[in-house]
């Protein structure tokens, strides 16, 4: 394999918590510039996997590299090259929009000018320049999620990890959110996104479906539908997820 072509390489990724195996022998490769969907029911092990790839959690075993660096030994190098938007809300609610940008830009080591320029650019794209001095707590969830995504990519990472970025958001905002993801991918950022909305799966270049900590299917949406004789991703998912034992 030509490793330069891959943003993420995971071979036999295993994560155990005591006797519980959250990630059972995951193997997948994510190409540069790809939008890679990580699907699965609640508790399937998506968040565990994403946290390992971001260097927030140590895997039990496996051969894993992100942006060309080993997650066991070079986690801090990986961190300079990735962005992460967690399931939990990641902006400071008592700070304004611009203050959040300044803080996160600052700890990524961006210069004052870069921060100012990026902030204007991001707010301009979202058409919310007038909200720059608004406290986050007073903004609706949809806008907060878009801002969290903007903050996650403001330092121009090679890869951005999105953990259920559209949870609890209305369909229109979800649509707009995916437009942002496409823009990011078009600018060369690899996108690794987890979701349990099957319609969103159709937007991904390739997807993997996790059931009980294992990858049950991996391919483009069209391939998966053909293999499982299904009309929509929803049908594919239901067929696979029926086997699940770890229901919430």
């Amino acid at each position: 394999m030509n490793s330069a072509a891959y943003a993420i390489e995971a071979q036999n990724l295993v994560k155990r918590f005591g006797s519980f195996t959250a990630n059972d022998n995951l193997s997948f490769f994510v190409k540069k510039g790809e939008i890679f969907g990580f699907l699965g029911a609640n508790g399937a092990g998506k968040t565990t996997a994403i946290r390992i790839l971001c260097g927030l959690s140590k895997p039990t075993s496996g051969k894993i590299s992100v942006a060309g660096f080993n997650v066991f030994t070079q986690a801090e190098k990986i961190k300079q090259r990735i962005g992460y938007m967690s399931q939990r809300f990641s902006l400071y609610e008592d700070l304004t929009v611009a203050e959040n940008f300044r803080f996160y830009g600052g700890i990524y080591g961006m210069s004052r000018d870069q921060i100012r320029q990026k902030t204007e650019e991001m707010l301009g794209k979202l058409n919310i320049a007038e909200l720059r001095d608004t406290i986050i707590a007073s903004l609706p969830l949809g806008i907060r999620q878009k801002l969290a995504f903007s903050v996650a990519i403001m330092h121009s990472p090679e890869i951005v990890f999105l953990d259920e970025p559209t949870g609890g958001v209305d369909p229109i905002t979800r649509r707009q959110f995916w437009e942002m993801i496409y823009q990011a991918a078009a600018s060369g950022i690899t996108v690794f996104v987890t979701t349990h909305y099957m319609d969103e799966a159709e937007y991904c270049h390739r997807i993997s479906i996790m059931v009980d900590g294992r990858i049950e299917a991996l391919g483009t949406p069209a391939e998966l539908k053909a293999v499982h004789h299904a009309l929509s991703m929803n049908d594919v998912f239901i067929k696979l997820a029926r086997k699940a034992v770890n229901k919430e």
Binding site: E76, S86, S90, I107, Y108
Partner: peptide, 13 residues
């Protein structure tokens, strides 16, 4: 508790 520490831990700080 809020979860913002994750966002800091994922930076190269």
């Amino acid at each position: 508790e809020i979860g913002t520490i994750e966002q800091i831990n994922v930076t190269p700080i």
